[in-house]
């Protein structure tokens, strides 16, 4: 219970960084922290106490894996989400560098001309 709540706290801190900070790089860092916390939450939900990694090793029956293995489904989906997070972050950093080149600042409150 407390572990779930702590990952929620991490999510809230990322959201705060995303909303209240002016620096664009800080906002990107907030998004990265949100990604971490959500991935962590999903993997935590799939954990089984005393569980083993869902990998079949030599001399192990499939039934043993059913009895003891942790949930593989969130792990597979989180694997997807981590890699997508990297791609979107690269895109965000590219946009951020282009904005710095145009406006010479990272400050969000100074970037107020939406004209091209």
């Amino acid at each position: 219970m407390i572990l779930y709540f702590l990952s929620m706290v991490l999510l809230v801190m990322g959201l705060y960084c995303l909303v209240a900070k002016k620096n664009i790089v800080k906002k990107i860092i907030g998004i990265v922290i949100i990604e971490y916390s959500v991935n962590l939450f999903l993997v935590l939900v799939g954990y089984r106490s005393g569980g083993i990694a869902p990998i079949l090793v030599k001399g192990m029956q499939a039934e043993e894996l059913v009895q003891k293995g942790v949930d593989p489904l969130p792990q597979a989906l989180v694997l997807t989400s981590i890699v997508i997070g990297l791609g979107t972050m690269a895109l965000m950093v590219a946009l951020c560098l282009r904005m710095y080149e145009k406006f010479k600042t990272f400050d969000m409150s100074k970037i107020n001309t939406l004209k091209g």
Binding site: M1, G46, P72
Partner: peptide
């Protein structure tokens, strides 16, 4: 939600059983 350490695993048990 289910307690830490006790997941439901309805679909995943089938995956674990028949996956390999």
């Amino acid at each position: 939600i289910p307690k830490f350490g006790e997941p439901i695993m309805k679909v995943s048990k089938e995956y674990l059983r028949t996956g390999p």
